[in-house]
Nucleic acid binder design. Structure first.
Lengths: 199, 199
DNA sequence: ACAGGACGTTAACAAAAGTTAATAAATTTA
DNA sequence: TAAATTTATTAACTTTTGTTAACGTCCTGT
């Protein structure tokens, strides 16, 4: 296992809580490299999926299936954690599929290892809290945007915001899903918006 | 302070993690009763609002102000925790207002007390994690519904679900907000839905 | 190289939602 | 009790979105 890969994961974790080296080494033996080829699923709807992954390289999306259609609601980029938090937390089948948009390389570990660390260590328990709190803040912001902004406002906000990777790297019909509109509608919104800019 | 009020709060907390009596008593001295009259704000947008409340009786809503309009996105009922989690976590001004829909009676405490307990005690730290995890699951479910269901489907799901108090106790124009549609549109959805039922 | 697929735009039409305003019923409050 | 406010519905009209389909372009894999 490459030291630089381990260091990247450690950096993310330490951005939540400073985990001392000896506690960090409790996790390391359980890490495994995983490769996912473009287009392949890493986590599959309907299966119990309790693994957590750290994306060393590549891009992934997660989607829900509704009326036979795939609805993409999130994207994962390099240096981010990924997984079905729902499935891991509730120990029930995943409601979503996580698919590689490009060839992906991950460091993965079973969520149950984390649960064991929560019991063993105050620092790891705190990491669990900080991670969940971070997710709450992100989800709440996104949910409020869905409730109070129009699709056009959401698109403009995405353009203006910090999630530039979504705009740069993700195909528009998937961004449409992410914004909660159809691909055709997003195309129209874009036309409208550029027309306004020219004014 | 009434024992039965304390017991209700303890029950909620212990539904997340079993907090032993001696650790519980670390929180008790910091609890204060608060009364909020119908129509009054308990937490105000723009202010630093780091208190956490437990609703002993009454109903509250929280709303965001956008383009001068109040957009209600959540309701709180008896025996639930309330507050601006965002403001407490990030120690920045609240983006939302929490208002009493009926006369309310709360047990409140500063979030910073909880933070101190997180440092002191493994059990309280775990409570913090479990609470955040619970919020993640609820927010994620709601966000997905907003992304993949139509307003009509969301309304039907609300009718069929377990949040009966919202249907029973909340005025329709506020439910419309909660579902992300205008009050007029919800009225039309209801008409459509009852017409279908009769078929 | 070339055949197939993915991607983005546009058109045409139908369905749904937003907005404003009017009305009536129910509830509050003075 | 009477007046005022809140609440829900409906109508009329505009705007937006969804859907299906067609078209061209770009990319990709064989």
């Amino acid at each position: 296992m490459e030291d630089s890969d381990l260091q990247k994961l450690k950096n993310i974790i330490c951005s939540f809580v400073d985990v001392p080296q000896d506690e960090w080494e409790l996790l390391v033996p359980h890490l495994k490299y995983q490769e996912v080829k473009k287009g392949d699923d890493w986590i599959t709807e309907g299966k119990l999926e309790t693994k957590i992954g750290f994306l060393l390289s590549g891009t992934m999306r997660h989607y829900y299936t509704h009326d036979g259609e795939q609805k993409t609601t999130y994207f994962y980029f390099e240096n981010h954690l990924t997984g079905s938090y729902f499935s891991a937390l509730t120990h029930s089948p995943s409601k979503l599929t996580i698919q590689a948009l490009t060839d992906c390389y991950l460091l993965a570990f079973p969520y149950k290892i984390l649960v064991a660390l929560f019991d063993q260590s105050k620092v790891w328990e705190r990491f669990g809290r900080k991670l969940a709190e971070y997710l709450v803040l992100g989800l709440e912001e996104r949910m409020v945007d869905l409730l109070i902004l129009s699709p056009e406002e959401r698109y403009l906000q995405l353009l203006a915001g910090t999630k530039t990777k979504i705009i740069e790297q993700i195909p528009q019909h998937l961004i449409a899903n992410y914004l909660g509109v159809s691909a055709v509608s997003l195309s129209r919104i874009r036309k409208r918006v550029t027309a306004k800019k020219i004014d």
